[in-house]
Amino acid sequence: MADEAVRMRHVTRRYGTGTAAVTALDDVTLDFGHGTFTAVMGPSGSGKSTLLQCASGLDRPTSGSVAVGGTELTGLDETRLTLLRRDRIGFVFQAFNLLPSLTAEQNVGLPLRLAGHRPPPARVAEALRQVGLGSRARHRPAELSGGQQQRVALARALITRPQVLFGDEPTGALDSVTSREVLTLLRDMVHQEGRTTVMVTHDPVAAGYADRVVFLVDGRLDGELVGASSPQIAAHMAKLEALPC
């Protein structure tokens, strides 16, 4: 197994061509170690979501290399890249993206069904138990609170037992109390189960649950904090946002 769960080397991502080209990521070199919880922060337009998309194989860098679990993504064709994302990477987004006509257990088992497998009932039940929803398996999304829906989305991401879990503002649509519950769940999965997690967030309180916070400004890395409190993270963000454009 590679030393890092995700390895990025000199990753640049440009959109457009000529004078209209926009550089969203600019020569980023970054590692995410196994069993770590990393938050990615930065001012609006700093390249946070682009970094997550390139690191997870949802987008291809213009140049540079990305490896997940020692597998280099750059040379994979679309079929092999899709299989790697399906089998080794989990995603949780701000939008829950649950199918309203399916129960919680059916939503959780959906990735396995799409892969052509019958979801083992015990495995689905275990995923729901992990997120504290073992008694809600037969409930549909409309019968669940926002926080419970996000927990179902998290269980769905975990059903394939991914090496890395990526979250893009996973608590952005939740109230503060429910947000803390989901963030505690994410942190516990990292520390108790060794689940590598990378989370993009704009919220210093959310970032305070992570072991490490890396900062982006204009597509470039601009330092990191390890073991920082939410007030320390907020103060650092305030300095970045005060920088001249």
Rank of each mutant, 00 (worst) to 15 (best):
M1K: 08
A5F: 05
V6C: 12
R7P: 09
V11R: 02
Y15P: 05
G18E: 02
T19N: 06
T23M: 05
D26G: 07
F32Y: 13
G33M: 08
G33Y: 02
G33E: 08
G33N: 07
T38A: 03
V40T: 05
V40A: 05
K48L: 02
K48F: 05
C54K: 01
P61W: 01
G64L: 03
G70L: 10
L81M: 15
T82C: 14
L84E: 05
I89P: 15
I89G: 15
I89D: 10
G90E: 04
F91T: 12
Q94G: 05
S101T: 12
L102V: 15
A104T: 09
E105K: 13
Q106A: 15
Q106W: 09
N107L: 09
L110H: 03
L112S: 12
R113Y: 02
A115R: 09
A115C: 11
G116Y: 02
P120K: 04
P121M: 04
A122E: 11
A127K: 14
Q130M: 10
Q130V: 14
V131T: 10
R140N: 14
R140L: 14
S145H: 01
G147Q: 06
Q149H: 00
Q150S: 12
V152P: 12
L154T: 14
Q163A: 14
V164L: 01
L165T: 04
F166E: 03
D168L: 06
L174H: 10
L174W: 10
D175C: 12
S176R: 13
R180F: 01
T184F: 03
L185Q: 05
Q192R: 14
V198E: 00
V198Q: 04
M199N: 01
M199D: 01
A210Y: 01
A210K: 02
V213R: 03
V214I: 13
V214D: 00
L216C: 04
V217D: 03
D218R: 13
R220S: 10
R220G: 10
R220C: 08
L221H: 04
L221Q: 02
L221K: 05
A228Q: 06
S229H: 08
S230F: 03
P231Y: 06
Q232A: 15
I233G: 12
M237L: 15
M237Y: 04
C245F: 11
